[in-house]
């Protein structure tokens, strides 16, 4: 299998060609004893505690974009979902659905990126599956990842746990991922420095939980952005949320693109940011812990939890006015992750 080859239906047949691809391409990249056994499933040692389990599918278009590709997006996405349960992710699975005709070179790049992302997050890819579908039946490549992690004793975070008085911390700039992908689409070639923020957040979460600060909610505002995620939390916890526009961290070039296209950065996806909702007494310390992480340098407190208008998110605008930040209704940008 050389870089000049393309993926054929044979590669998903389960026969010799499939096996050769697994042995020559996949196995050497994913340094994993469980995968090397080539059993039907992975048999795993799990530390004592509660298990967090999550799954997500990735269909982003285009598959390559500034700062990353569908591969690291798929690994980081599941790592982060498990992390937001308060767990340390340990193992993940990878399901590849490939459209025939995908250049092997592209597949190799994606798999290399996945391996690097897994290594960075310190998780192991322990089981997987590859299917190839006829041309036109998928778009280049779709990836599903699932993963498990263990929640340390004493940790209990949930979207239901926000209480009035809590502070809301966001770990960095908003909307970078969504705007990066959009900018790469046909006909929208902006010359901008925007890159995806796709990153594993499990080390940051571990630092937060190890700090012995009280943490009520951890969430990553992916599809639907900060606005939608905070609405979910306000609904789950039965509280109001107040945000301050002047504190929302948005890069100039992202803001400019949003203005040009009529998007609100509050509703655009992030792939490497978290929201931490913590009691006021611990807010500054958690903020410092987040800022000490390589992916949290631009963290800020953007607002607070209130007992006003339960279930609603209210934004205080730059000019001192207020408006409702509703959940995204449906004009979501398609296929950004």
């Amino acid at each position: 299998m050389t870089d000049n080859d393309i993926i054929l239906l044979d590669h998903g047949s389960g026969g010799k060609v499939s096996h050769a691809m697994f042995a020559d391409l996949i196995l050497p990249l994913f340094d994993s004893p469980e995968l090397a056994r080539q059993d039907d499933g992975a048999v795993l040692e799990v530390p004592k505690g509660r298990l967090a389990f999550s799954t997500d599918s990735y269909v982003v278009d285009p598959i390559f974009f500034p700062g990353g590709n569908i591969g690291d997006l798929a690994v980081n996405g599941t790592v982060n979902d498990i992390s937001m349960c308060g767990a340390q992710p340990l193992y993940i699975s990878v399901g590849l659905i490939i459209e025939e005709g995908l250049p092997v070179k592209d597949l190799k790049t994606i798999l290399e990126t996945m391996a690097a992302a897994a290594k960075k997050a310190n998780v192991r890819i322990v089981t997987g599956d590859t299917k190839v579908v006829p041309r036109g039946k998928a778009d280049k490549i779709f990836i599903n990842t699932s993963g498990v992690g263990v929640i340390p004793e004493g940790v209990d975070v949930s979207g239901c746990s926000a209480v009035p008085g809590d502070k809301i911390i966001v770990s960095g700039t908003l909307a970078d991922h969504g705007i990066t992908v959009l900018s790469e689409r046909e006909g929208l070639k902006f010359d901008s420095d925007v890159r995806t923020d796709s990153a594993p957040l499990n080390h940051m979460v571990k630092s937060i939980l190890d700090s012995e600060c009280e943490v009520h909610v951890l969430r990553d505002p992916t599809r639907g952005g900060l606005g939608t995620t905070l609405n979910e939390i306000a609904g789950q916890s039965g509280v109001g949320i107040r945000l301050y526009e002047e504190r929302l961290p948005v890069r100039g070039s992202v803001q400019g693109t949003c203005e040009l296209l009529g998007f609100d950065p509050l509703y655009i996806a992030n792939e490497g940011k978290l929201i931490a909702i913590v009691p006021e007494k611990d807010a500054n310390q958690v903020l410092e812990v987040i800022r000490a992480d390589e992916f949290g340098k631009e963290a800020v407190i953007v607002g607070e939890v209130t007992d006003q208008s339960p279930g609603r998110v209210i934004l205080e605008t730059l000019i001192g006015g207020t408006r409702v930040v509703d959940m995204l209704a449906g004009e979501q940008l398609p296929r950004i992750c």
Binding site: G262, D264, L315, I319, G321, T322, R323
Partner: peptide, 14 residues
């Protein structure tokens, strides 16, 4: 676009 701007910036509320 004005309609949107008026809402987005909370202009009615001030």
């Amino acid at each position: 676009t004005h309609t949107m701007a008026i809402f987005r910036h909370g202009i009615r509320s001030v």
